[in-house]
């Protein structure tokens, strides 16, 4: 079975670092980005199974990432995390077919479980 590829986009460097440490333990290939632009570029080169993205970012925000990924790469699942526990944003994300929506602070175990479910969907 090929290694699953996970992408983490968050302008907080620690989020990517910690997610990478934990998720690599699970055997995933993890790439982290501090903003959406290089991440979207990378998606053009490589297929990722799950994209974990922050909602509020400078430049292209999480909602845009969700829209772009779901329209261009329907097989890729998107998990959104946000420091703004905002119901409107959650509803919009659901409409755009988000796989999961996490308010910060994120429970890594829950994130892992969510990723596992997403991968089952992909498979």
């Amino acid at each position: 079975m090929a290694q699953h590829r996970i992408m983490v986009i968050d302008d907080e460097k620690i989020v990517g670092d910690m997610a990478k440490l934990s998720l690599e333990q699970e055997g995933y290939a993890v790439e982290t980005f501090l903003s959406a632009e290089p991440a979207l570029k990378r998606l053009e080169e490589e297929r990722f199974d799950v994209v974990v993205t922050d909602y509020k970012m400078k430049g292209i925000d999480g909602m845009e990432v969700l829209r772009a990924v779901r329209s261009r790469y329907p097989a890729t699942q998107v998990i959104m995390i946000t420091a703004f526990a905002n119901l409107d944003a959650a509803i919009e994300a659901l409409r755009r077919d988000v796989h999961d929506f996490f308010p910060k602070p994120v429970k890594i175990k829950e994130l892992k479980a969510s990723i596992k479910r997403a991968l089952e969907k992909v498979a």
Partner: peptide, 24 residues
């Protein structure tokens, strides 16, 4: 309050990782 959420999340994630991966 929101501004604090990000560093709080960072601390929380570090703590979780530290606990989980302590041995490694």
């Amino acid at each position: 309050a929101h501004e604090i959420t990000n560093p709080l999340n960072n601390i929380s994630m570090i703590a979780q990782t530290y606990e989980e991966l302590y041995g490694q």
